[in-house]
Write a protein that binds this DNA or RNA. Sequence first.
DNA 1: CAAGCAAGTCTAGCGCTGCTAGGATTCGGC
DNA 2: GCCGAATCCTAGCAGCGCTAGACTTGCTTG
Lengths: 195, 195
Amino acid sequence: MSATSERRERERAQRHQMIIGAARELAETEGWEAVTTRRLAERVEYSQPVLYSHFTGKDAIVGAVALDGFAELADHLRRARLAAPGPALRAVGAAYLEFATARPALYQAMFVLPTDLKFASDDTPAPMRACFDEFVACFRAGDEQSGLAAEVTWSALHGMAVLSGSGRIPGAWQRERLDLLVSRFADDQAAPPLA
Amino acid sequence: MSATSERRERERAQRHQMIIGAARELAETEGWEAVTTRRLAERVEYSQPVLYSHFTGKDAIVGAVALDGFAELADHLRRARLAAPGPALRAVGAAYLEFATARPALYQAMFVLPTDLKFASDDTPAPMRACFDEFVACFRAGDEQSGLAAEVTWSALHGMAVLSGSGRIPGAWQRERLDLLVSRFADDQAAPPLA
DNA sequence: CAAGCAAGTCTAGCGCTGCTAGGATTCGGC
DNA sequence: GCCGAATCCTAGCAGCGCTAGACTTGCTTG
């Protein structure tokens, strides 16, 4: 294991991240339909085939972008929940919708586009689990119903995000919708912050 | 206006419906990614360009399928609501989820794929408006809040449908989720059926 | 009845997509 | 200094949405 091969491995990892970054940037500025393997290759200044030495295909690149997104979303939700003066669900819900509108393409990769990522399974990546756990933490701890409530409120927020994002419901009253949702689901005696 | 041209117009209308039907069937059996203009043309036994004499492009074909879907969904929801013994929202919600799982491709065309159809606008097609109105009818009439409640519950149901449909939440507890949603939103003193 | 026009349809092809086979090149280890 | 392995690129495949232009068909008019 020479120093040279270590360097190459490092460079390879850098390039890996560069591909993910380029895909994300391209998607966020021009939408996912503008993200093609050719344009991606051009951005990272390599030929197309090198993409396939890093990822099994375009779907895997989208998946990698999505995974980054989950880490960011988990962090975003956690900060909001811990800093919340009122009900945790309100803060987390607002942060969630904020994330969805601020990074529509990233959100799309995570929750709309077909993905190979495994949800709600034993080998679900940690950042994804962390996102879901933020919702669970909004409800009374220990209760098995917390999971169900988390799923329903998450579904509602996802529906609001995606339907307003695609113009299927007016984007204007998003705050009022959130208020209504929280008023029906908030559990003010939420467990103390997990950490 | 000869009899011949009348016949041709009739045939043309038939072919129009045949294209929509073929697209829908293909999508429901093999998914929308299998619906290509070439395969569609082959199914209706015409060449590709005739598709473009009926529709401005593939998107318009998807849109036409979706519009048919809205009519069916509106009918489905209405029947469920009028025949409901318990709270209207429960019946409508169950019918909605049923529709989404029974016709996933149709549902996708209506609510997930990019569309040109105008939602929540003055020139929104009647069937689409009718679908939304079924949700509104689940809440106390006249109340301006009914629209908001309809949007939120619809969003929740959409989220549940689409997240479980793509494996992002387990499909098993859909009924429990619906129960929870209804318990928080149902308005038992709903207005009498509109018709 | 024949000429000409208009509508309808098809063949062929453009530029793009995701993806890959095979050759050229570079570079570390003996 | 040479050889083998790793790396990377050129070129190309099959398929995509869509369209220009030729061709056939059939109605309308002189």
